[in-house]
């Protein structure tokens, strides 16, 4: 089964939130949707599960056309983790999942077994009878993930699942995502954490102003757009950095209170030259997805 979206458009008054966006999510794949705030990530996910009605476009999941009355059927195969915590505060942890199971037509023993399995999987079984308001931020996100899994979906949409979580809770969620990937579930993920995207995603789509600006596997994109290595340099003037970068025709930009310069393999004199600038700190490190993000979104904004 494959999820295909073609030429999605959405305008809110004069603001183009999604502009001719197309993508495919293949079986068993983890696809990351990345982009700055307001790039259209949540609007796109909303279109996939019916919360946002596109102005134009086409979405199909397997044989089902999501925009012409078959959404309910398609949603049997979907699990959605929304950005906001919309757990039911009137119900306990266990009831949240049982009530949600019923929305998918799963009741009785079958629902109870599945819910208990999911509570064990997400390490929430000891909180079974707690009110959801008593859960920590990380537990709430895990419960929403568990809730999206009640009907054993083939597709899961995770809209910023780890925003605001501590490192411990984040890697707890990563473990669950990897577990689902190993079970063959297709996952669409949005996140602001580039390390998370690099770690989890097979493929990435970088979005800006509702449009794709680049796509590919994380390692491919890093190599293609930045190279293997970057240099972080602090305590020098912009003119100095610009001078060196322009001489070798390299990508550079401001980075915190210093600068970032891409370091191609073939230029071995660059590092020596930079050292002559009397910088307070020079750091050579592997290029990562955050550099790609900064480069691409920066280019488009200029």
């Amino acid at each position: 089964m494959q999820l295909i979206a073609k030429n999605l458009h959405k305008k809110f008054k004069d603001f183009k939130a999604v502009d001719s966006f197309s993508f495919e999510l293949n079986a068993g794949e983890v696809l990351g949707l990345l982009g700055p705030n307001g790039a259209g990530k949540t609007t796109i996910i909303g279109m996939l599960y019916g919360a946002v009605i596109p102005d134009a476009g086409e979405i199909t999941l397997g044989e089902f056309n999501l925009l012409s009355g078959q959404a309910s059927k398609a949603k049997q195969f979907m699990g959605v983790v929304t950005q906001e915590n919309n757990l039911d505060p009137d119900l306990t942890v266990y009831q949240n999942l049982i009530v949600f199971s019923r929305f998918y037509g799963i009741t009785g023993k079958k629902a109870e077994e599945r819910v208990n399995y999911l509570l064990k999987l997400t390490n929430l079984i000891h909180k079974k009878d707690s009110n959801v308001e008593e859960l920590s931020g990380g537990m709430k996100r895990k419960l929403i993930l568990a809730r999206s899994l009640v009907a054993s979906p083939k597709f899961i949409f995770l809209d910023e699942p780890t925003t605001g979580l501590d490192p411990d809770a984040r890697q707890d969620l990563w473990k669950l995502v990897n577990h689902l990937r190993n079970e063959g579930v297709s996952i669409l993920l949005t996140t602001h954490y580039m390390d998370e995207a690099e770690r989890l995603c097979d493929r990435i789509i970088l979005l800006q102003n509702g449009k794709t600006i680049d796509a590919g596997s994380p390692s491919e994109m890093i190599l293609k757009k930045i190279g293997k290595t970057v240099i972080e340099i602090y305590g020098v003037s912009q003119d100095q950095v610009q001078g060196v970068a322009e001489k070798y025709n390299l990508w550079w930009r401001e980075f915190a209170d210093g600068f970032l310069i891409a370091l191609p393999d073939q230029i071995n004199t660059l590092l020596e030259e930079l050292k002559l600038l009397n910088a307070t700190n020079i750091k050579e490190r592997d290029a990562n997805l955050e550099d790609v993000f900064l480069k691409l979104t920066g280019e488009k904004l200029n």
Partner: peptide, 14 residues
């Protein structure tokens, strides 16, 4: 406030 409607709309309930 509770966004219960929005949560239910992620399921097959139209």
């Amino acid at each position: 406030y509770q966004k219960t409607w929005q949560a239910i709309l992620t399921t097959p309930i139209g």
